[in-house]
Structure formats: structure tokens, C-alpha cells
Design a protein around this nucleic acid. Structure first.
Lengths: 204, 204
DNA sequence: GGAAAAATTTGCAACGCCTGCAACTTCGCA
DNA sequence: TGCGAAGTTGCAGGCGTTGCAAATTTTTCC
């Protein structure tokens, strides 16, 4: 790797760290691109040659992690059922998303939970990985109905998103988060009909 | 209703229609707030006293419709199981979301499918109605576990969102969309394990 | 080692969204 | 008819974002 590439990586990192630090210190809206650029020792214009927008810098880390996970997912033992494979894939992704990365993980989570616009962006990303799940799914079972694949991915990702967000927002410990995820997977796999409270009549 | 209120309603409508017409004619990004204001015969500044942002004008109609649905939902016969009630609620909401409203319905859908930022906003709204589903659910079954409620809402809304988006993007007819929704509900209710293709081993 | 070529950074100007503010107009009510 | 409330408007300005061309740095090749 040449000097050029090394420097670019370094600059990218400097910008991201400066941005997250400032966001933590004085808030997201209160930090301008100019502030970030100054803190990272680059020109404001350069910021945009590394990140397409101010919002993207918040998701840079998690995106890298997700990309790694996707690469690792390509090779899976072929002797498990598609359902088992999907469970694995989902768990690995959750691991990547839910783990606190570096020292700024908590800040990123807090920012996303607080700012509606960041939340929207996060949901968009979630939606994009849902597309990925559809592709992986149709690859695992080529005979599957298109609608089925779409629905399964939607319900799976939707359910997982819901638990994780809930656990995050309510300060669950990693352990309780994990057991909540297990519970969520079970519900999605066995159906809403398997939840007793749902099929009991309200009369009492 | 006094003159004042009537005029406001009228102005709001004028702005929304002008905006959607211009979006359709020359594109979303190609239309500025100034253009919309001029077409609606108000000052640019006034636009923002009716809609908080340019994006919101795209969702104004659907938001109104959803609000109506929510009001109608409050009163449900108490002799059905929560699961049945949820199905009704979901179907009514889908009806509201999926139907083409007025002459601009198709344009709104197209805009949202095309523009990533609008897609993100749409997902955020979806997420908000998911919160509503959680509330309604815990109301229907007060004894339900918190996590269960969150997961169920997430899977339900996630699955529905996935089918509808897919049908929309692929130009399904209303009939085939409806049957796809039924299929989706069945999958979510009975669980992914009920889909044969998923539990068959890949070996053949 | 040095010059040409390629990639990167930078400053500049501009556009468009959005907001706060203060003046102005319109409406409702007594 | 006049007063207060509500709504509209213009203005000034901040901020994110982009295109462009000049300046700088890195690579490549002689």
C-alpha cells in the first residue's frame, strides 16, 4: 500500500473521529462542517470528498463492519437448512450492529436515537440490508416464491430491528439484549400465533 | 368554521397541489420552494408555516389518511382475539396506505421509491406507526410481555412494508397486491417455519 | 534526480433549504 | 368602528452541498 492510500485512510479516520468527538461534546446540530474540518485539519471542501454528507459520517463505522460481515457470510456450510443459515446470518449482523465499536459506539447510538433525521437514515440502511437478506435467501432456496422471500426478510429484519432498538433505548445489558433477541427469533420463526397472550380472548 | 380556517385549509391545499404537480412535471430536486410558492400564489416564507419541510408536503395526504384510520380503530368489537384485531388494524392501515389517493397518488409513490431521502422519511413514518401498533397491542393484551409486543409489531409492520413496497415497485395490480398481503399475513402469523422451502435442506 | 502526469486538496462562488425577526395585513369580536 | 389576535411577508443570515479551476502533492517514467 502506497503512501497515497495510507494518507487517505488516515485522513478519513481523522475526519470521522473529529466529527464524533465534536458531536459528543457539543451536539450534532451545533457542530458545523467547518468545525469538523478545522478539528481534522483539512479544508471544509475536503470533508465532502471523504463523506457524501454530514449524516454519513455517523454511519461510517457501522457500514464498514457490515461490509465485513457480508464478506464472511458468503461461505456457509451447505448442510444446514436455509432457516438455520438465515438465523446465523441475522445473528452475525446483529452482533456487528449491536456491539459497541470503539470508544464512540455509545455516542453513535445516542445520536441516532435522538435525531429524527439520523433515525430515518438508519432505517434506510436497515432497509438496504433487508434487500441483501432477500438476495441471500433466494440464493439459499432458489425455488422459493418471490413474495415469500420478501415477506420473510421483512418480518425477520423488522422484528430484529424492533428488539434491538427497544433494548438500546431502554438500556438493556448485553446479556438481556441477547436473550431478547433469542426470544424475538423464536417468535418470528414460530409465528405470532405461538404467543399465548395474542390468541386469548380479552373477556375475563 | 370561520373564514379564517377555511382560507387556511384552502391555502394548504393549494400549496400541496402546486408542489405535487411541479414535482410530477419537472422532478423533485428540480423544483424549489420558491417555485412552489409562486405556483400556489403565496410567499416562499409562507410555505414553511404550512409544511415544516419540502419533504413533508409529499407525505401530507397519507398522514391525514392515517390519522383518520387511527381514529376509527379505537372502537373495535371486544369479542375477537387480539390477533384478529391486529389483523383488522393492519389491513385497514394497508388500505389507507396502498390506495391511490386523488390524482397524485401515483406520483407520490414514484417519488418515494426513487428518492433515497424520501424513502428514508417514509421508513421513519412506518416506524412511527409501528410504535402505534405496539401501544394498541399492549392495550389489547395488558398482560403481554413488553419484548413480545415490540417484536410482534416489528415483524408485522416489517413484513407488511416489504410486501407493499415490492408490489408497488413491480407494478402489481390491486388484486394481486391484496393476495400477496394475505399471503404475507399468513406467513407472519404461522411463522417462517411454516414455509416449506425454508426448512428443506439444500441437498437434492 | 528531475520533469511530466495523475491524483488530491483547496478556495471560491453559488444554490437551495430553512429559521428568526420585525413590519404589515387581515380577520374576529365586542 | 376599532382593538387584539392570527396570519403573511420580506429580509437577513446560517448551513449543507456542489461545481469549477487553481494550487499542491504524489507517482511514474526517463
Amino acid at each position: 500500500m502506497g503512501l497515497r492510500e495510507r494518507k487517505k485512510r488516515q485522513t478519513r479516520r481523522a475526519i470521522a473521529e473529529a466529527a464524533l468527538r465534536l458531536f459528543a461534546e457539543r451536539g450534532y446540530e451545533e457542530t458545523t462542517i467547518a468545525d469538523i474540518a478545522q478539528a481534522a485539519d483539512v479544508s471544509p471542501r475536503t470533508f465532502f470528498s471523504y463523506f457524501p454528507s454530514k449524516e454519513d459520517v455517523v454511519f461510517a463505522e457501522i457500514d464498514e463492519r457490515l461490509a465485513e460481515v457480508r464478506e464472511g457470510i458468503e461461505r456457509r456450510p451447505a448442510d444446514e437448512t436455509p432457516l438455520e443459515s438465515m438465523r446465523r446470518i441475522v445473528l452475525e449482523m446483529i452482533e456487528a450492529i449491536a456491539a459497541e465499536h470503539g470508544e464512540y459506539g455509545a455516542i453513535q447510538v445516542q445520536l441516532v436515537l435522538e435525531r429524527p433525521s439520523l433515525q430515518a437514515r438508519a432505517l434506510k440502511r436497515m432497509n438496504d440490508t433487508e434487500q441483501y437478506v432477500v438476495e441471500r435467501l433466494t440464493e439459499l432456496c432458489p425455488a422459493i416464491d418471490e413474495i415469500d422471500a420478501v415477506v420473510i426478510a421483512g418480518a425477520l429484519v423488522g422484528g430484529m430491528k424492533a428488539v434491538i432498538t427497544h433494548c438500546r433505548a431502554h438500556g438493556y445489558t448485553p446479556q438481556s439484549t441477547r436473550s431478547a433477541v433469542d426470544r424475538a427469533l423464536a417468535i418470528v420463526e414460530h409465528g405470532l400465533g405461538s404467543v399465548p397472550a395474542l390468541t386469548r380472548r380479552a373477556a375475563e
